Structure formats: structure tokens, C-alpha cells
Computed example of a mutant assay.
Amino acid sequence: MSLRSIAASAALILTISSVAGMAAERYNLGRPVTGDDIAAWNIDVSGDGAGLPAGRGSVAEGRALFAEACSACHGDKGQGSAADVLVGGRGTLATAKPIKTIGSFWPYAPTIFDYVNRAMPFNAPQSLTPDQVYSVTAYLLFLNGIVPEDTTLDAASLAKVEMPNRNGFTRDPRPDVAPK
């Protein structure tokens, strides 16, 4: 790239930045981010359960909600349809055709809550209440034979669920990513 091209690119960037700044002032676009804005996006849940919200949900409640909001894509029992299979696959990870499901692959139950809370249902992500997400999570864990049918989950109990593949991952040996 020539010096003239670099100078022209820099001038263009400055012009665009200036125009964008003037437009924001003139049209009152944008605003400072508030703590409430950040809190609304700070919904991550870690494998140990940190970040799980208050709430509770049962397998029975999850069964009804799954039939209503999830089965069209995942099948009536999580067997898959238009979207991924959610049930089964145990013992297949070391085979030529592994089936990665909640029961065969996921190492931590709280991360199921995290995913459902962020991304489901597909047509309306983040529309479920914490109680509904706990319920769907309980039902999915039940379908995979991980919790009994009379289970009710909350933040404390979900964090204690032992997933079948909990020890199926290896730790990252790099010292810059070691757990603290």
C-alpha cells in the first residue's frame, strides 16, 4: 500500500468518524450505558452454578412447557426433528459417530440452564422466565435419565447435579488459562 493510499484511508476514516459523531449529536442517537443495561446482558451461568438466578422448576412443569415450546423443533421426547437431538448418545463419544447430547456430552448441568436461557426457544430467545428455564432443564435432565421424575430444581440443586460426562474433558494445560 502506498503512502498516498494510507493518507487517503486515514482521511476517509476521520471524515466518517466526524460525520457519525455529528449525526449522534444532531439526531440524539445513543446514550451512556447504565448499570441496568449491563445487568440485562450479564446473564452468564458458569459450570459451578455461579450466576444462576432465583427460581425453581419441576420435571412435570418442564414436560408441559417442552411440549408447548420445544417439541416442534426437538421432537416430543427430545429425539430430534428440525433441530438437534437432546436425548441419548451415552457411550458413543469414543465411536466413529458420536452423538453429542445433554446426556452424553455436556459436563455441567448449570450450562444447560445457561444455553436454554440465552437461546431458546429459537423463535423467541430469552423469553422464558427463570422458573420456566429451570423446568425445561429439569425435564431435559429427566429425559436423559440424570434426575428422577419427581425432581424440582433451583440454583443450589442444579449446581449439584452430576452429569455423566463431567470427567470426560481434559484440562487446558496452558499456565495462562489455569483456574484461579
Rank of each mutant, 00 (worst) to 15 (best):
R4L: 11
R4A: 11
S5Q: 12
I6N: 02
A7Q: 05
A8P: 00
A10T: 07
A11T: 05
T15N: 05
T15I: 11
T15F: 08
I16L: 15
I16P: 00
S18C: 09
A20D: 05
A20F: 05
G21R: 08
M22D: 03
R26E: 08
N28D: 11
N28S: 12
L29V: 15
G30Y: 08
R31V: 05
V33I: 15
G35M: 06
D36Y: 06
D37F: 09
I38C: 00
I38P: 00
A40M: 11
N42C: 06
N42W: 04
S46F: 14
S46M: 07
G47D: 03
D48K: 12
D48I: 09
D48L: 01
D48Q: 10
G51Y: 13
P53A: 09
A54F: 06
G55L: 12
V59N: 10
V59A: 11
G62C: 10
R63T: 03
A64K: 14
A64S: 15
L65M: 12
L65I: 10
F66W: 15
S71E: 14
A72W: 04
A72P: 00
A72H: 05
H74P: 03
G75L: 12
D76R: 13
K77Y: 02
G78Y: 12
G78W: 08
G78A: 07
Q79D: 15
G80I: 02
G80V: 00
G80L: 04
S81H: 12
A83S: 15
D84F: 03
V85E: 10
V85K: 15
L86V: 01
V87M: 11
R90F: 01
T92G: 01
A94M: 04
T95K: 10
A96K: 07
A96E: 10
K100D: 01
T101W: 03
G103Y: 06
S104K: 00
S104F: 00
Y108M: 01
A109Y: 06
P110S: 13
I112R: 03
D114T: 04
Y115H: 10
R118T: 11
A119W: 13
A119H: 13
N123P: 00
N123L: 04
A124R: 08
A124L: 04
A124Y: 00
P125R: 14
P125I: 12
Q126A: 15
Q126M: 14
Q126W: 05
S127L: 01
S127Q: 04
P130T: 08
P130M: 08
P130N: 11
D131G: 04
Q132P: 03
V136E: 04
T137Y: 06
T137K: 10
A138D: 05
A138K: 02
A138N: 01
Y139S: 02
Y139M: 01
L140Q: 12
L140E: 08
L141N: 07
L141P: 05
L141I: 11
V147P: 03
P148H: 12
P148F: 05
E149W: 03
T151C: 01
T151P: 01
T151K: 10
D154W: 07
A155W: 05
A155Q: 05
A156D: 12
A156Y: 02
A156N: 14
L158Q: 03
A159N: 06
A159K: 08
K160Q: 13
K160T: 07
E162A: 15
R166D: 04
G168T: 07
G168L: 10
F169N: 08
F169G: 10
F169S: 08
T170R: 15
P173M: 13
R174H: 14
R174K: 12
P175T: 13
V177A: 07
V177K: 14
A178W: 07
